[in-house]
Write a protein that binds this DNA or RNA. Structure first.
Length: 694
DNA sequence: CGGCAATGTGTTTTT
DNA sequence: CACATTGCCG
């Protein structure tokens, strides 16, 4: 551990261990370094037991990175140090004290789809018309209420309109249903622990005593519930260090309030405030651009980021004709970088909304450039995967009605809506879960099957359990009998899912169904469960927070896209969009490109959008316009069906250079390139592969 | 009950 | 446009 490597302010933030500390850390000012060094310092120099530390981050990724970096600093990995997200921390409390709030030990966590389904069900039971009472809107209201720690009773006191009164009713029914199903939603992971701590001072005392030192990252993005949780636990020792930057507050839609950071000095007495303004990440031009944009926000503490780094390259701007051209341009620029020896992992494409990844993905696929889409829940949203997970959840917690309804007729068992409705009614009468209410008919066979699998599950590994489910339920047999390409893909997906669990078991030994379900509830991103590393990264700006890349492309910089159309009418929201743009820009270390499209297909219609106001806010001296309009929208067939190869044959690729064919498969070939690219798989006859001498 | 066609409906951002 | 939901019929 080397404290001398820090600047004076960073050093102070590490050494000032006692009492409340507020670190206002600009983007790229070495905030993670401060946090990890501080933890290491507490353990190694101050002799603090890691068990007494609590560090809270915003994403699972950040938590994992922090754990790794701390382990490196102290040359040891403490298993019992609590470094986690708010939600997983909440879950650890709930796993201990579930009974206080009326749950059984095997409660499950609803994903957002399940929670919406439950809301819809309640709306139906209350005989409300979903056209007038939009289920999604109500779900969002319930979620906000929970993040404000409002129970249905409390919420009803503030309900003014008819709509709000109906929300109260649905909220009540929803909550009852959750308890009946022995399941909690995401927001409960914060709300229930707080309730437990509030109502049980002795338990609160245990936590206060345990967590003598608390660190909270991204404090500007805490909502009411998170704020209260930290406040309660830190109340005794008040050794609390919060780090944040109000200019990077981008989660107000989730109830985050950046005023939490501005009010910190009022909330705690004798607060020490440290400002980190030196940026170690970006070149001068990139920082200039970031400052040009954020200076247009009125609601912010005056803070100036500066850097000792070189001027670097001016920030490139490109105006594309449409979204296809935009993607084509970005990928052509990426190819240039790759040819110059840049690693794929050092390149990121950022956008405002998830849907924007698609065109870029298509272009990357055309060029056979490996990439990952962060935060794509695509894999877990697939029907066969959701079905399998529902079976796992049901086996773990048979009271989970959502999961039961999902799979009771998968594969087809001739149990239709009518039967399901009957079971539901029966369950309501008996005031129990649907599983318990089943007593006859084909559905009883289903129940017995689940109970049998549950019994057998006790003695086998998770991966074996999955095989057992696929076999016993007939899911696999049904897919196999279908004998279509689509069914083959589904089977392949199920195998991929199994490889994830196998991978888990390899890493952690025997893994319980409980921990596995917890993992996929809290980390629903498939990419975080895979091991591939050297990939181009595609993600939303929100997901990019806290990360950095040498080369960054920000696409879709248009009025209506970024800033998003739903934010245009309110000044507050425009400021949040601007902070978002600031976050995006400050991810870049060396090269930054800003791209917008003149026209774009949206809702199946062509839209002509003006360039984003954020581009106009930048001093043109910091920018360089890329003029070469690339408009070769290629229609030629990508695959030459007639191509044939021989082992050992040399081929050429624009980006990877000359390589050798090392394997010939049914539809693909493997080509070995120069060491740093390794072996790459291509479709046979793909136009990116050229035969030498042609 | 199950399958298909017609209709409708909506999109920010995430733990 | 893409997907979800509804409605109709065998």
């Amino acid at each position: 551990m080397n404290i001398d490597a820090l600047n004076n302010e960073q050093k102070e933030a590490v050494l000032c261990t006692e009492g409340p500390l507020l670190v206002l850390a600009g983007a790229g000012s070495g905030k993670t370094k401060v946090l990890t060094t501080r933890i290491a310092y507490l353990i190694k120099e101050k002799g603090v037991d890691p068990y007494n530390l609590l560090a809270i981050t915003f994403t699972n990724k950040a938590a994992r990175e922090m754990k790794e970096r701390v382990a490196k600093l102290i040359d040891y990995k403490y298993e019992n140090m609590q470094i986690s997200t708010f939600h997983s921390f909440g879950l650890t409390i709930l796993r201990k004290y579930y009974n206080i709030v009326g749950y059984k030990s095997n409660f499950t966590i609803l994903d957002s789809d399940d929670s919406l389904t439950t809301v819809k069900k309640i709306i139906k039971e209350l005989n409300l018309d979903p056209k007038n009472y939009n289920p999604k809107a109500i779900r969002n209201r319930i979620s906000s209420a929970k993040n404000e720690l409002m129970t249905p009773d409390l919420y009803s006191k503030y309900a003014n309109t008819d709509f709000e009164e109906k929300v109260v009713e649905v909220y009540r029914g929803y909550q009852e249903k959750l308890v009946k199903n022995n399941s909690v939603d995401f927001d409960d992971l914060l709300m229930l622990p707080i309730q437990i701590l509030k109502e049980n001072p002795d338990i609160l005392k245990l936590y206060q005593e345990r967590f003598k030192y608390i660190l909270v990252d991204e404090y500007q993005d805490t909502n009411r519930a998170q704020y209260i949780l930290v406040k309660m636990i830190s109340a005794k020792y008040k050794n609390i260090c919060v780090v944040g930057d109000e200019s990077q507050s981008i989660y107000s839609f989730r109830g985050a309030d950046y005023k939490n950071i501005l009010n910190f000095e009022k909330d705690y007495k004798n607060v020490k405030v440290i400002l980190l303004e030196e940026n170690y990440r970006s070149t001068k031009y990139i920082l200039n651009v970031a400052n040009d944009v954020i200076n247009n926000n009125k609601n912010r503490k005056d803070k100036k980021l500066w850097t000792k780094r070189d001027e670097g390259n001016k920030v490139k701007c490109y105006t594309a004709l449409n979204e296809k051209d935009e993607a084509h341009y970005v990928v052509s620029e990426i190819k240039k970088l790759l040819v110059n020896g840049v690693d794929r992992k050092d390149i990121a494409v950022l956008y405002r909304t998830n849907a924007q990844s698609r065109n870029v993905e298509e272009e990357l696929l055309k060029e056979n450039i490996p990439y990952k889409v962060v935060g794509s829940f695509f894999f877990y949203k697939r029907k066969e995967i959701k079905d399998l997970i529902a079976y796992l959840k049901l086996i773990y917690n048979t009271d989970d009605d959502n999961s039961l309804e999902r799979v009771i007729n998968v594969p087809k068992r001739a149990i239709g809506i009518k039967t399901v409705q009957k079971i539901q009614d029966e369950a309501n009468i008996k005031n129990t879960s649907m599983f318990n209410a089943i007593s006859k008919g084909k559905e009883l066979d289903f129940k017995l099957m689940i109970e049998e699998i549950k019994e057998q599950a006790k003695n086998i590994s998770l991966t074996e359990l999955i095989d057992l489910i696929l076999d016993k339920t007939g899911m696999l047999a049904e897919l196999k009998s279908e004998d279509s390409l689509e069914a083959d893909i589904r089977i392949e997906n199920l195998n991929e899912f199994k490889s994830i669990t196998a991978n888990f078991e390899e890493m952690y030994g025997i893994i319980s169904l409980e921990s596995f379900l917890e993992e996929i509830s809290l980390v629903a991103d498939i990419e975080e469960h895979k091991n591939e590393t050297n990939l181009i990264t595609l993600m939303t700006v929100h997901s990019a927070k806290g990360l950095e890349f040498d080369n960054v492309f920000i696409i879709g910089l248009e009025e209506g896209i970024f800033p998003h159309v739903n934010s245009l009418s309110s000044y507050e929201e425009i400021e949040e969009e601007r902070r978002l743009a600031y976050v995006a820009i400050t991810r870049a270390k060396k090269n930054l490109e800003l791209v917008n499209a003149k026209s774009r297909m949206l809702f199946g219609q062509e839209n002509n959008n003006l360039p984003s106001r954020f581009i106009n806010e930048i001093n043109p001296d910091n920018l360089i316009q890329e003029k070469n309009v690339i408009n070769k929208i290629e229609k030629a067939n990508l695959i030459d069906e007639s191509a044939s190869y021989t082992l050992g044959e040399k081929v050429k690729h624009d980006v990877y250079g000359v390589g050798m064919v090392v394997a010939i498969k049914d539809k693909t070939i493997d080509v070995a390139f120069e060491h740093k690219y390794g072996i790459v798989t291509f479709m046979k006859g793909h136009k990116v592969i050229k035969k030498i001498g042609e």
